[in-house]
Structures are given as C-alpha cells and as structure tokens.
Simulated scan of single mutants.
Amino acid sequence: MKRRSSRFARVACAAAVLAAAIAPAVWSTSASADDDQTVTWSVRPADESGPDGRAWAELELEPGETTTERMAVINLGDSAVTFSLASADGYLTESGRFNMLPSDEKSTRAGTWITLPSTVTVEPGATAVVPFLVEVPKNATPGDHAAGVAASIRSEGASEGAAVGVESRVGFRVMVRVAGDVAPGLEVHGAGEYITEWNPLNPGTVVVRYTLHNSGNVRLESSSAVEWNGRTVSGETVELLPGDDRAVELHLRDVWPLGLLSVPLSVERAVVLPDGSREHIGPVMQTVSVSAIPWPQLLVLLSLVLMVGGMAFRGRRRRRQVETLVNAAREAGRREARIEG
C-alpha cells in the first residue's frame, strides 16, 4: 500500500508540473475532478463574440493607460465546471517555452497589472467570454513586460494519509509593450572546447558554448552560427525576454587539431514588435579561441620516434657485437701465427 501511495505522489507531482506549462499558442487539457469525471477545456484570446484567432495578447500601452482584454474559456466536457481564474508574471523556461508563476508564488511585475474575476462557471460544450482589465502603472518602465492569464481546476488525492492537491492550468501569455525609449541589447559570452577523436586518422569536434543575455528592455529573437573552412553550422532561433539568459551549444564536426583555433561566432538579433514583425538590428560578432592539441597524432609520432630509435639502437649494438667478434677472431689469428712461428 505504501508503494502505491508513493507512486501516486510522484504521478501527482509530475502532473502538476506538466499542467502548469504554458504553450505559446491555443491549448486544451484534461484533468480528473473530485467526482472522477474528466474535465477538458481550452483557453484562448477573444473579442466580445468569442475566440478571435490570436495565439496570445499583444498590447501597446502608455504608462498609466488601461485597456480591456478578453479570454474565452471553452468547456469541452460533459458537465458544468467552475474554473478558477488567475493572472501571474510570465517567463520563458530553459527550453524557450512560455510559462507563468504558479499560484503559490507571488507576482511582482506585469502579472499584478491584470484584474479579472476569481472564477467562472461554464456549461458543458459552452464558451464563456471573460473580460479582464490591464492597467499599466504610471511609473512602469518602457519596453516589454510578460504576464499570463489562465483558467484552472484543482483535484485532490491522498498519499500516505495526507491530501495531495493537483492544479491543472490552461491559459495564454499577455505581452505588454510600454511606450517609451526602446533599448535593445544582447550580450554574448562564449567559450570553446575541442573534443578529440583518439583515432589519429579521424578529425575531432569543436564545441562552442555560449550564453545569450538580453540586456535591453524589449523582446529579442536571436539565431547563431559558427563557420570553419567554408562550412557553417547554425543554431535554433531563441526568444529572449528582457533580462533573460539562455545557454546555447553548437557542434562543428570534422575539424583537425591544428593547435590554437579561432572560430568566428555570429549572433543575429531582431526586436520582436507587438504586431509580430521583426526589426533586425545587426549581428554580434565574436571570435572563440579553441585549443586543439593533436594528442593522437603526437602519440603516433612519439611511437614512430621510439620505434626508429629502438631500431637504430639495436643496429648499433649488433654492429658492436660483430666488430667485437671480428676483433676477437683477428686477435686469435695473430696468437696462432706467433705460436707457429
């Protein structure tokens, strides 16, 4: 029984983590409520009549300005459900997926700019359009600010006699561009490593590892590339919110170890505008130095030197042995000649 309870606790924990993930598009999910009925729902940006086709809300507002947005909560199940509604600060995970702070963690940024009802009840197969207010503080800093809104249900289980709550949450991001001076900035901190192939007839791999830091106040998209001997290796496009850091790794294969290598790294930058377009602002260029010591080849060379040296030593020793025998034979011949004489 204890094993089954522990297993349930692990599953519940994993379900909570997965249910909290916020995708950058329309989503739906399902969860089991207390009465063992499965609840399936989706949440989308909306206008007065229902979902309007947007993936998320993109707003341009002045400091102190207020606007009304809407979310459509769609009940895809067979019974009426009361959903909890909430807003929270938004962020990007290490994999680049958008998420919002969990309900037990207090928001301090754009999540606090949103006011919406605490709950909404939706009939089976119906859609509820819920208005919510976005109010930008008068002292808000210019640039991009990320938040999220979500509809959730909570189910209960038991583990070793204790109640375990699982929150299943579905929503979308709300991006607010506060008017003012736009200051894009991207810092690149890179380093390189050479991975040796110990077969001396095979070249190795240069691994370029670097961190991207959005030091500006607007959302950026970045794509990177390294070049070597006319070959280019490109990385995936990375989205960065202001203040974000992202670790990236590129592999340049089939590179011979030639000592100190200088690998050019190019990082393209583009500001993501509220209308979804991109404004390219030019690349960041950096040279990554990589120490590529040809250890396998040096070992082969050392082996050849030792082999040749050993053969030369043995040759000299044999020659000395032959000379010794020849000299001994001559001396014996001279002794015999003196005796006969």
Rank of each mutant, 00 (worst) to 15 (best):
V288L: 06
V182G: 09
A9L: 02
S30G: 15
R154S: 11
R246P: 05
R70K: 00
V176S: 00
P203I: 07
V263L: 02
F132Q: 01
A146M: 14
A16Y: 06
V130W: 08
Y91F: 12
L61D: 01
A80R: 08
C13M: 15
L220A: 09
E105L: 13
I74K: 00
A158L: 10
V290C: 01
G230L: 01
R318L: 04
T40G: 10
G143I: 03
T232F: 07
M71P: 06
L301S: 13
A33C: 15
V120S: 03
L325R: 04
A12T: 00
G341E: 15
S30E: 15
S6W: 14
A332V: 03
K106I: 15
E105W: 13
S87Y: 03
T115H: 13
D47M: 10
W198P: 12
T232H: 03
E65K: 05
G161D: 13
V308G: 09
S28L: 00
D144C: 07
G333P: 05
P283S: 06
L220I: 07
V136L: 04
L241K: 00
R278E: 05
E60Y: 07
V73M: 06
R10H: 08
V208I: 08
V300N: 09
L258D: 10
N327E: 02
T82D: 04
